[in-house]
Amino acid sequence: SVVLRHAALHPKSDQEHEGRTGAHSDAVVSVSAPARWYYRGTAPMRRLHWLVTRPMGRAVGRYGLRTRIHHREWDPVPSSPVESVPLIAPTPLLIVHGDRDGYFPLDHPRMLAAASGDHADLWLERGMGHAENAADDELLARIGQWAAAHAG
């Protein structure tokens, strides 16, 4: 989701095509991203929301997981990933998602791909769980090859 927001907020401009540079992406790869905020449709996401939104959860995060979580809610709420994706074009976009992702089911990557207006490549990986912990060396090599072929 962070990669998608960054790419949407910092598109490559015409000036950058003329040799000037700025914060932008030549190609974008998203792995296991949610399509929308506040999703609680799976047990892991319900646990995460408890951890983030409740005082006792934040205490568990701080002392049990050694992670400090701020108590304030987003203000303003940032653009959701599905709102960000249409703004990425024409930068090449790859959406990678496992069919065994325990956090976000397959409707998330499909919503992201649909929001791209057929501008994104969608890889639904058989047997893959969530994020970088689930990505094997073969998948990482394929992602690297895609990025090298699409970066401008």
Rank of each mutant, 00 (worst) to 15 (best):
V3T: 15
L4T: 10
H10S: 06
P11W: 09
P11N: 11
P11Y: 07
K12D: 02
S13N: 00
D14S: 12
D14K: 12
H17T: 08
H17E: 09
E18D: 10
E18I: 00
G19R: 04
G19M: 04
G19Y: 03
R20M: 08
T21V: 10
S25C: 15
A27D: 07
V28F: 07
V29C: 14
A33C: 15
P34E: 08
P34T: 01
A35C: 06
A35R: 03
A35K: 03
A35F: 03
W37G: 05
Y38S: 05
Y38H: 14
G41F: 13
G41M: 07
P44R: 04
P44Q: 09
P44C: 03
P44M: 04
R47C: 06
R47T: 09
R47I: 09
R47F: 10
L48H: 08
H49D: 13
L51F: 09
T53Q: 13
P55W: 14
M56Q: 12
G57R: 06
A59D: 04
G61Q: 01
R62D: 04
R62P: 01
Y63P: 00
Y63K: 00
L65R: 02
R66K: 14
R68D: 02
I69L: 15
R72V: 02
R72D: 12
E73V: 07
W74G: 00
D75G: 07
P76E: 02
P76D: 06
V77G: 00
V77A: 09
P78H: 11
S79N: 04
S80L: 02
S80N: 01
V82W: 08
E83K: 06
S84D: 15
S84C: 15
V85E: 11
P86H: 06
L87T: 02
I88E: 09
I88M: 08
A89V: 02
P90V: 11
T91A: 12
P92K: 11
L93A: 05
L93R: 08
L94D: 12
L94H: 11
L94Y: 09
I95M: 10
V96E: 01
R100S: 11
R100H: 14
G102I: 04
G102D: 14
F104C: 06
P105C: 03
L106K: 01
L106A: 08
D107N: 08
H108D: 10
P109Q: 13
P109H: 13
R110H: 11
M111P: 00
A113T: 02
A115P: 10
G117D: 10
D118M: 05
D118R: 14
D118P: 04
A120S: 13
D121Y: 00
L122K: 11
E125C: 09
M128N: 01
M128S: 03
G129P: 06
H130I: 05
H130R: 05
A131N: 08
E132A: 13
A135K: 03
D136F: 05
D136C: 02
E138Q: 13
L139H: 07
L140E: 04
A141W: 01
R142P: 00
A148M: 05
A151Q: 04
